[in-house]
Nucleic acid binder design. Sequence first.
DNA 1: AACTAGTGCAA
DNA 2: TATTGCACTAGTT
Length: 889
Amino acid sequence: MEKIMIIDGNSLMNRAFFALPPLTNKDGVPTNAIHGFLSMIYKMIETYEPEYMSVAFDLKGPTFRHVAYDQYKGTRKGMPEELRVQVPILKEILDALNIHRMELEGFEADDLIGTISKRCGERGLKVFIVTGDKDALQLVDDQIEVLFTKKGISLIEKYDAAAIFEEYHLTPLQLIDYKGLSGDASDNIPGIPGVGPKTAIKLLETFKSVEAVIENLEEIDNKRLRGLVETHANQALMSKSLARIETGVPVEFELSEFAVEEPKLEEARALFSLYELKSLMGRLKSEVTIAESEMPVTAEEAITWIVDEKGLNALLKTVRASKQLAVYSLIEKIHVRDIRLAGVGVALKDRACFIPESADLSLASEFLKAIGPETEIEKWSYDLKREYLLSYQLGYKLENGCFDIAIARYLIDPSRSSEKLSAMAFERLNMNLAEEEAVFGKGAKAVSVFEADQQSAAMYAQNCARAIFDLTIQMKGEIESENMAQLFNEVEMPLVEVLANMEFEGFNVDLKELDDMDVILTEKLGTLETEIYELAGGTFNIQSPKQLGEILFDKLGLPAQKKTKTGYSTSHDVLEKLEKHHPIIALIMEYRIYSKLKSTYIDGLRQVVNPVTGKIHSSLNQTVAVTGRLSSTEPNLQNIPVRLPLGRRLRKVFIPSPEHTLLDADYSQIELRILAHFAKDERLIHAFRNKLDIHTQTAAQVFDLDPKDVTSLERSRAKEVNFGIVYGMSDYGLSENLGISRKEARLYIDQYFAKYPSVKKYLDDTIEECRTHGYVTTILNRKRYVPDIHSKNFNLRSFAERTAMNTPIQGSAADIIKIAMVKVYQDLKKGGHKSKLILQVHDELLIDCVPEELEAVERLLKGDMESAVSLEVPIEVDMKSGSNWYETK
DNA sequence: AACTAGTGCAA
DNA sequence: TATTGCACTAGTT
């Protein structure tokens, strides 16, 4: 059967644009969507080998739907500028590639696609519609299938009628009714308010269509629902007609127009080279000359099982000869000190296999124990920290773990945090790796590696290792060419082991202290609750912003200040302004303080205390924060209260191991020192070199005073100004923070820049640099792309400019403390110390310290932190030890 | 069960 | 209308 592939151009461009990092050619023309689009359709052509093909585009003007309903797509924003400019370029490229394209005034691409699909289907062709828009599913029939691009450009899901039924329990045509009932926010189709996906499906299962639902109103059991349908019956019918894709558009065509032909090689090459579509260039060569590196890699379909000692020994021999391998362990992490191994996927240059682990034959752990300590073998992985934790569990030394592709990916573009292995494999290798969710399920249906189908799990692990190996080969070069080898090899990779160690070690807690605070808070909350209900004249949920808003602004008639999307704002700064109007406000503010402490910290922390160690093992993530900082989860130990006395008391919960002492060191003004360094500002440098109080100095300059005359109010205002500088402040932001007028704030800022002209110049230069390159960098050449820097939208552009100003500073601070962490870890080890690094809080390091080692460790810690890098100004560290985290502050 | 919004904690 | 994060509760579907 002949096949035609019809592609929704706008939809796929949109997907590609948001899925890929911002690429540009040397002239600064954005090309990411073009790149993604072309990779996708090449992939599709390869897989389905259609004889005919066309790409449909939307035209700008209104369509018949706007005529019928003027709000249609009323909430939709226009295309981002960076995407819009890529559309005409893509059209030009399609023409050069001899790929047919079409568009028609007054109709959306969907309608054109609908009409052509149906007509081709009638002629007996097999039709594939490629789109990222689920609306197209209504077109599916015996001849027509939809290839839907899920997340990013990596995952394509094929929908035929059976797949649709499985997901929605509806026929393709019923999807129109479905949208008529549930509406669609993105197209601004109203549907019936209060009816969402679940209700819509239930109704359609019973009644089959919108019309039937309306005709048989009395059969709807749920009274509320019946009322909703009744009132909005017309709106539902109108929504249904908007949702229907037109299949009878007046258009003439000959099938031959769509025939897939050879590209116009010269033109296509010229365009590919102009827009620097290097990896696609290979596609233009004739089949025989495709270089090996550009060959699509296919996921293995057979598992090579290692089943006995003989097989294992043969594998070990090969690995030792090749000196490089990729590993992917199948594990179940009960907790940080109970990790169970199910097997390990292994890949070398030209082979891959799976080694199972069972109670009577522990081949996988035998393999890891043999290979792990061998320093001359490079181990590559995805999520190396996980492999370290496994090594602690099994008791072997993991040496030369030198490439983590998740971290390499993060350095290449940190805005795509924690990218899945499957996505990387598809985008960079053209390899279809199974999704983790497909193998192990997700959410409530998720199963452990032991419960999953063992064939699929083994296949998965083996293919993961295959992907890791091939990706490492590729990304090693990219890290080099991006000049990130030092950052990667000397900082990020050594840091993995440090973080694994910290997570394994954990932070000891005083459960008694936790209980004591719990009692105090619970009692306080009870009292406050009663008082609040009395003043409100009734009970309500104080923790619900909605209910609280109704009580304060409707019932008590207090003057509403701000609105949020869903109602009145009841945030802290709003309440502050109401404090004088009613005694209930102060009580609510107090209630909030206590309930925050209880729910997030007392209850939250108790839940994550490890039953075996009695410690909290927070996870430190290395590939999340766009600036290069670490992030902390389960629990987040980087936001433990410190500002208010009661919250601060919580820090008494955090104690060292028995008989140990807690050592805490933090960088003093690290971000302002970095600013002084980058800006080379004489005043700032002078202040730091002479150990002057930086906020007092700023106050003296901004308020034109002698430093000794600066009052504490002036100093604290100057402190806010200094914060603001680092964040790329506006006069509005500063005025909000200081509770002063915008005019006055403006004055402070102008005065600051007048006194620190090099800072002004540095910040302006940084924005300019961002405009030219599209990204900004840190002291270790960590990169962050800031595409909105060219946006026409003022808000987006301003945000981008603040990002550009802040990232080099925040990111360099992250670089510096990371260097320090690696040094501290290595020096503690070298010195034979038993004291352990246990936590990092952005500019602060904590060590669980053996008392006998205290002096030596203090020296080591301070020394390593202060000498991490050399700046124009000294780096200073404040340090304190104590018997809990409260005392070290 | 999975999602969003509002709120608030840290550096 | 100040940067970067994470997590809690309520509320929706």
